[in-house]
C-alpha cells in the first residue's frame, strides 16, 4: 500500500469520526483506551515506520460523533469490522489498549476474517475476579489526580493536573469520560459473557501488560491468555496501565516483532 497521511474526519455510514492514518505497509488498526489518544502521540510515529497505522477516535470519544442508537461495546465492534471492510483492508493487525482492547476482543470473537493478529494491551472486557471483587479500579469514583497517579509509573505523567488543560482538551476529556460511562458503567468495564466466547478468536494473539499496572493486575492479563487459544503474554518494563504512552518505542517494537514473526 502506498504512503498515506490522513488527518481529519471520516464518514462511515451515518457516523462521522476523527481519523488519523499514517505510514505505509500492512494495515494496523489502533483502538485507543478510555482516555482517548492524541494525534501526535509518539506511538503513532513509532508504528508508522513499519505499518500503515489507522487511529480512529471511537464514536463518542475525541471529536467523533455518537449516534443515538449506540450504547454497547458490540456497537463499536461492528462499527470497526465495517470500517475494515469499507477501507478494503483484507488483513489488519488490531491493537487495543484498555477499553480499546475490549472493543478489539469483541471484534475478534465476531470475525477474525480481516484480523491477521490481535494485540490486547491492559485490555478490559472480561470478568475474572469473584462476584464480590472488581478487577478494574473504579475510574469513576477516584479523583482525577488519584486516577493519574494510579495509571502511570512515570511521575511526570502521574502528576498531570487537569486544571492545566486548555478548553479543547478539557472538552475532549469530558467527552471521553461520558462515552466511557455510556459503554462501560454497568456491568463495569466488562461483558459478562465475553470470557465464554474467547475460544472463537482464531487470530494469533499477544497480551501485553505494563510491568507496574495498578489499574488492572497482570493476573487479569493471564486470564485473557487462558481463554484465547495459543495467546502469548508479555510485559513492558517501566510502565503502568498505558504502556503505549509510557514506552511507545518498546511497545511498537514488541507489536511489530509479534506481527511480523
Amino acid at each position: 500500500m502506498s504512503e498515506s497521511v490522513v488527518n481529519g474526519s471520516y464518514k462511515l455510514g451515518e457516523v462521522s469520526i476523527d481519523l488519523t492514518v499514517r505510514g505505509s505497509g500492512p494495515a494496523l488498526l489502533f483502538l485507543h483506551p478510555e482516555i482517548g489518544i492524541e494525534t501526535d502521540a509518539p506511538l503513532i510515529d513509532a508504528l508508522a515506520r513499519e505499518w500503515q497505522v489507522h487511529v480512529p477516535a471511537h464514536p463518542g470519544f475525541g471529536g467523533s460523533e455518537l449516534p443515538r442508537w449506540m450504547s454497547e461495546v458490540d456497537d463499536l465492534a461492528y462499527f470497526y469490522l465495517d470500517y475494515l471492510a469499507a477501507q478494503n483492508i483484507e488483513r489488519a493487525v488490531v491493537v487495543g489498549s484498555s477499553f480499546g482492547g475490549w472493543i478489539a476482543a469483541e471484534m475478534a470473537i465476531r470475525s477474525c476474517e480481516r484480523i491477521s493478529h490481535l494485540v490486547l494491551a491492559g485490555a478490559a472486557g472480561i470478568k475474572v475476579a469473584d462476584r464480590e471483587h472488581r478487577d478494574f479500579v473504579d475510574m469513576f469514583t477516584v479523583s482525577m489526580a488519584e486516577l493519574n497517579a494510579l495509571s502511570y509509573e512515570d511521575p511526570m505523567l502521574a502528576r498531570r493536573d487537569i486544571r492545566e488543560l486548555d478548553e479543547a482538551a478539557l472538552t475532549q476529556l469530558h467527552r471521553n469520560r461520558e462515552a466511557t460511562g455510556l459503554f462501560a458503567w454497568s456491568p463495569y468495564m466488562h461483558h459478562p459473557k465475553l470470557r465464554q466466547r474467547l475460544h472463537r478468536i482464531v487470530a494469533p494473539t499477544l497480551v501485553l501488560w505494563g510491568s507496574n499496572d495498578r489499574i488492572v493486575s497482570a493476573d487479569y492479563g493471564r486470564a485473557w491468555c487462558a481463554g484465547i487459544p495459543g495467546a502469548q503474554f508479555d510485559q513492558i518494563a517501566n510502565s503502568g496501565h498505558y504502556p503505549h504512552i509510557e514506552q511507545p518505542a518498546s511497545f511498537a517494537a514488541r507489536v511489530t516483532a509479534f506481527a511480523k514473526a
Binding site: F140, T141, V142, S143, T171, R175, E178, G181, L182
Partner: peptide, 18 residues
C-alpha cells in the same frame, strides 16, 4: 464527596461539568 462521585459522567451537561 469527591467531585467525580458527585458528578458522574453525563449526569450534568458537559459545560456545567467542566
Amino acid at each position: 464527596m469527591p467531585l467525580e462521585m458527585l458528578m458522574p459522567p453525563g449526569y450534568t451537561s458537559r459545560e456545567s461539568a467542566k
